[in-house]
Design a protein around this nucleic acid. Structure first.
Lengths: 361, 361
DNA sequence: TACAACATTG
DNA sequence: CAATGTTGTA
């Protein structure tokens, strides 16, 4: 039996907006620690992993692990029936074949209840090794959104190059080539001094991180990350995972074409839905206009060595939709391994993995 | 000869936006009391009745009754040529085959004039008996809009059920079922205490009554209202029907037609409102977002008995466009008879009738 | 993907 | 009051 009470339905709404174009069906894996969702995009090029911590809920109870197979389009529709500030209660009984969502207006004078059919989806949870990366870039989500959206107008892919001085995004296209260099700045260093470290304090909104004037613990954290310095980190990390297979996406370039249909190597199953894997540039202004980070520029670079990888912009643009969930994004890279794009928000985190293009053009 | 001077062209513009999708051609029946329009939607399932009172015009003159056959698309186009705050003068001579519209800027430094061709439309004014309903629900127009739009995502129809505790809207669909319960609240009771109360007294006071401040008369109104409430408000209303044919739409699902002529059972006295208990007159609110009722929730329920009816959401969504005309909407229902959805605005009222679906699916 | 409506800004 | 941008809907 699952019962989770969320203070604001908006979180779920935004979460679904973030991933629904990438994935059509997925299991919400619920256990006592929270809710996790992991799925490859429809063309099996990218992987999305969402984590919602039990502690982030106003109330959370999950007696035993249960996977809830959900069609994300249906869930999106149902969530649209909630007002942003509604309290949202999610319930599913053990033998659940429906997910029960209750929206309660703050004033309690309106209670809406929805039952959504669940489906069986073959659990295809992949082992995602907790890799260490050679470079980590921390920047504002809006800036990242802007850059990939801008560059996507020029070409199909972007080369991301990280060096001590900063990070460069470069694209080449028919009509024009372009590149954006974000320099590492002192301001950014302070701003993200302890971003995403421990989960205790940064719990809130990340927003506060922007205001950080204190530059004390900065040093330490940063070092922790710089430790690893050998190249070619294989994404194997620990194997404590069960017998799952690993995340081995097809090299980006290829996967592009196929959508739906694909039987591919995925033995997913039952109710598969067709879904256009299109990418469209969705701006990011959402979140809270309020804290339009004054110091919107600058990035924090943490690295062991230069990295230079090329990715499909289409996916990055898609990932950037998550800027509705957080003001900050982190890009983790090592040469020749999938990029990890991470958005942390109070309640949890959403991670996207994308394999680099091989024959860098 | 007709000449009507409207203070704000915006009213007409909004009115047309409300009905133009439902009806393409209709007669504006003009007489000394004002202008009425009545028409069935294109599939003859719903009926729209608009009333613009002569007194609502800055100036109004109509020597003798005359029907002006108008193509609503044309009128919409012509009205788009008016600025919202233009003064709008409508003129038609007795032998009219054109409708003359004059838009006068407030500053009088601009005068635009348009002539729109009229057409002959078979008068098919139906007699709409001034029915008494078993239940009346008063709520914010925006909430109603929101609910029907939400539910229309799930299914084709909605079951509306009214009980003392509130009103429930329920829909069933492929992917999910949903229902929204709006509870009757004390706040709502006060808010609508004398909604539609009338011309004599509440003329200006209506709004104030909402304020907690004025405690004196508020009390009274409130009691008046609650009394009925508790005792199962009798929704009496005079049954002064006449001999006209009645509005007998085909059960929503099907379609049929029926026509007749004759004016409503509105007889003599202009000012007279055959009003259901306490509904009538007073405009809802500003219509403009201005006073986005803080207490947006809650409904006022007045009923004699439980009612439960099923309607096509498509039409309700369409009706809800009238929220541009009023902040408040009233739903009047009795089992097995057409639903009446009414929006009252300063100048008049727009009423929609929709037959219930029979074999509730 | 395109169109319409709403909100915001100048 | 008009224009533009953004959001939501078909």
């Amino acid at each position: 039996m699952l019962e989770a009470r969320l203070q604001e339905a908006a979180l779920l709404k935004r979460l679904l907006d973030s991933i629904k174009e990438l994935v059509t069906d997925a299991n919400f894996e619920c256990n006592e620690e929270g809710i996790n969702l992991q799925a490859m995009d429809n063309s099996h090029v990218a992987l999305v992993a969402v984590k919602l911590e039990a502690t982030g809920f106003k109330k959370y109870r999950c007696d035993r692990p249960m996977p809830l197979g959900v069609n994300l389009n249906s869930l999106t529709k149902v969530l649209k029936c909630a007002k942003d500030d509604d309290i949202c209660i999610i319930k599913a009984s053990d033998d659940a074949d429906v997910l029960n969502l209750v929206y309660e207006a703050r004033s309690s004078d309106r209670i809406a209840e929805y039952d959504m059919k669940l489906m069986d989806i073959d659990a295809e949870t992949l082992g995602i090794p907790d890799t260490e990366y050679d470079a980590r870039v921390t920047m504002t989500a809006s800036e990242f959104t802007r850059i990939v959206r801008d560059l996507s107008q020029l070409g199909e892919s972007v080369r991301i190059e990280v060096s001590k001085e900063g990070v460069r995004f470069a694209s080449e296209g028919e009509a024009a080539n372009g590149n954006v260099l974000l320099k590492q700045t002192e301001a950014a260093r302070e701003k993200y001094a302890n971003y995403g470290k421990e989960d205790e304090e940064a719990k809130e909104e990340d927003d506060e991180d922007d205001e950080e004037g204190s530059s004390s613990k900065k040093k330490i954290k940063k070092e922790k990350n710089m430790k690893k310095e050998d190249a070619d980190v294989e994404m194997e990390g620990e194997d404590e995972d069960e017998e799952q297979e690993e995340f081995k996406p097809k090299s980006d370039d290829e996967g592009e074409e196929e959508q739906d249909e694909d039987e591919e190597d995925k033995k997913s199953s039952k109710k598969r839905k067709k879904a256009p894997a299109k990418s469209n540039g969705k701006p990011a202004k959402k979140v809270k206009k309020s804290d339009e980070t004054p110091t919107d520029g600058g990035v924090l670079i943490e690295m062991n060595q230069h990295v230079s990888l090329t990715f499909s912009l289409k996916y990055l643009v898609n990932f950037s939709k998550s800027s509705a969930l957080s003001n900050t994004v982190q890009l983790m890279m090592s040469n020749d391994v999938p990029l990890l794009v991470s958005y942390k928000f109070g309640q949890g985190e959403i991670k996207y993995y994308l394999a680099p293009k091989i024959g860098e053009e």
